[in-house]
């Protein structure tokens, strides 16, 4: 399998959110604003890539009987690192992500890729798998957040740069938003529609 395939499979073909259906908890909870989704995505890319590399390096050293505790220790360490760095240097994103940042430890994507891929493959492929899956997760999360925020609040929240406040307000929608989209029920509804769309799309593609 080519290295490029390891990198790109997480984007669409094995997208962790829409195809493998992993990491649903942060997907549904953090996708209320685009900036939160991007912040969470960057944190997951870092943790996923670093933990995949570390676990792949140690795969022949870690006894099979303690592989899960070892993976958890490694993943928790990188989550702690990313939490401390975000708290120090991007406190606004750290505050916005709240409890979901430390909960990356139990994100199924991280442990899933460690168990299914990094524990059985080389360092380079594991790193590319982590980057690809992380980017795929970030894309999905940002896409869901964009739809939820636009419909549910009539805004698009990015990051303030210079004179740009970071928030784009959409006239009309911001005055009378569909508030249920910002709630958990709206997230579940949207996720159901998107999953149905991607399943239909992949089935149709398979027949063609």
């Amino acid at each position: 399998m080519s290295h490029m395939k390891e990198l790109t499979k997480g984007l669409f073909k094995e997208n962790p959110t829409f195809i493998i259906m992993l990491g649903m908890c942060p997907t549904l909870s953090v996708s209320t604003q685009v900036s939160n989704a991007l912040g969470m995505g960057v944190a997951v890319i870092f943790v996923l890539t670093c933990s995949n590399i570390f676990i792949s390096m140690l795969r022949k050293v870690i006894p099979d009987s303690i592989r899960i505790p070892s993976y958890i220790v490694i993943i928790a360490s990188f989550v702690t690192v990313v939490e401390m760095v975000m708290h120090a240097f991007v406190p606004a994103i750290y505050e916005a992500l709240g409890v979901y940042l430390p909960l990356i430890v139990v994100n199924c994507i991280i442990l899933g890729r460690a168990e299914a891929f990094a524990g059985k493959n080389g360092v380079l492929d594991s790193a590319l798998d982590g980057i690809g899956m992380g980017i795929g997760f970030t894309m999905s999360l940002s896409f869901i957040a964009l739809i939820r925020e636009v419909i549910g609040a009539g805004t698009i929240t990015l990051f303030p740069i210079g004179s740009f406040s970071g928030t784009i307000t959409l006239p009309g929608l911001s005055a009378s938003p569909v508030r249920v989209m910002t709630l958990a029920a709206g997230a579940l509804l949207l996720m159901g529609y998107l999953k149905a769309f991607f399943t239909w799309k992949s089935t149709k593609g398979g027949k063609a």
Binding site: T32, N36, A96, L97, G98, T182
Partner: peptide
């Protein structure tokens, strides 16, 4: 300081 849900409690 708080750990409220982004977009809801926050």
């Amino acid at each position: 300081t708080n750990s409220e849900t982004p977009g809801i409690g926050k």
